[in-house]
């Protein structure tokens, strides 16, 4: 995936961000290399440092230390130059409310030095491409969440960036809009060879969309590889989710002491148990839960089980 002639799309070395002098590091010395044309995912729970990492890569957060390069441009030393290579879709709708959909794209193009005519024609082409051609004159405040996200994406692409950063691109979207956005991102990779760096806390998004994934927790990258490799290396167990009649701390403790149980994550009346794939362990867990057990789910190896194996707790709520 990483081609040798082009500079890395994103190259972070020993990047640290501490917001307050005595606060823990929000990003704690991470290294990250994203190759040309790659779809790269930062997967982790809220507060893992994903958004800060994207902020650092896109000039909006100044790192406390470390070096940050985007397509070979030092982001800290030359932010204005770096910004020409970067397209950003923020987590929240940050479109210009005082302007229409088309104007958001048009003026974005003008900021990047496009002529009147080319800004209008590219805006029209992008709106058409994302199926919002007929919404050009709509004020952005009147857009639904899905349409606003598509507008943001179209806007970020106006200046034909080399690297596209998407911060939680599908959070708050309905399943249909999420699929549409995945298709758009894949399309950008295939047709334009664009590099895409996205953050997500959705396991399936990282799994289905990303060529490589970095699992983040508490400001650190725990593992960085293809989803299949991560599953192979760390997800070689089974995730058993026990739904109980009531919270049961004693059962959680018992489970922790059971052979073959890798991790236990109690959350009110639900206990997630990560067990090795060996025969007979699931029945043993069920037997321990006894009559308290209301429901049971068994999941195959996934990024979720990998995450639990790595952190000892579940990613999804």
């Amino acid at each position: 995936m990483v081609s040798s002639d082009a500079p890395l799309s994103l190259d972070l070395r020993q990047v640290v961000k501490r917001y307050e002098p005595d606060a823990p590091n929000a990003v704690d010395g991470i290294d990250l290399a994203v190759g040309h044309g790659e779809i790269f995912g930062l997967l982790g729970p809220n507060g893992a440092g994903k958004t800060t990492t994207i902020g650092i890569a896109t000039t909006r957060v100044r790192p406390t230390s470390g070096t940050v390069m985007v397509t070979g441009v030092d982001v800290c030393a030359h932010p204005s130059v770096a910004k020409r290579h970067i397209g950003v879709v923020t987590q929240f709708n940050t479109l210009d409310r005082a302007c229409t959909v088309e104007e958001n794209l048009y003026f974005h193009g003008r900021f990047f030095g496009m002529s009147r005519r080319s800004a209008h024609s590219r805006a029209a082409a992008l709106l058409e491409r994302f199926g919002i051609g007929e919404r050009g004159r709509t004020m952005v405040s009147a857009l639904s969440g899905g349409l606003a996200r598509r507008t943001q994406l179209a806007c970020a692409l106006m200046h034909d960036p080399d690297v596209l950063f998407l911060d939680e691109p599908t959070t708050g979207l309905d399943p249909q809009s999420r699929m549409a956005l995945w298709d758009s991102v894949r399309g950008l990779q295939e047709s334009e060879g664009m590099s895409v760096v996205l953050t997500t806390h959705y396991i399936e998004e990282a799994d289905a969309l990303c060529d490589r994934v970095a699992i983040m927790n508490a400001g650190s990258i725990l593992v960085c590889d293809t989803p299949d490799q991560i599953k192979h290396d760390f997800g070689d167990g089974v995730l058993v989710t026990l739904r109980l009649r009531q919270a049961n701390d004693r059962l959680a403790a018992q489970l922790r002491d059971t052979d073959g149980v890798l991790a236990v994550d109690p959350d009110d009346d639900v206990i997630r148990v990560h067990v090795s794939a060996a025969d007979g362990i699931v029945p043993q867990v069920v037997a321990l839960a006894g009559p308290d057990l209301r429901d049971l789910a068994v999941a195959e190896p996934s990024l979720e089980t990998a995450f639990i194996a790595l952190t000892g707790r579940a990613l999804a709520p």
Binding site: T58, T59, R60, S80, V81, K83, R84, I86, V88, T90, F92, N93, T94, L95, D96, R97, N104, H108, F111, F112, G113, C155
Partner: peptide
């Protein structure tokens, strides 16, 4: 709304 974002990202 943080809608200054697009202008902050201007080159």
């Amino acid at each position: 709304t943080r809608e200054i974002e697009d202008r902050v990202m201007a080159p």
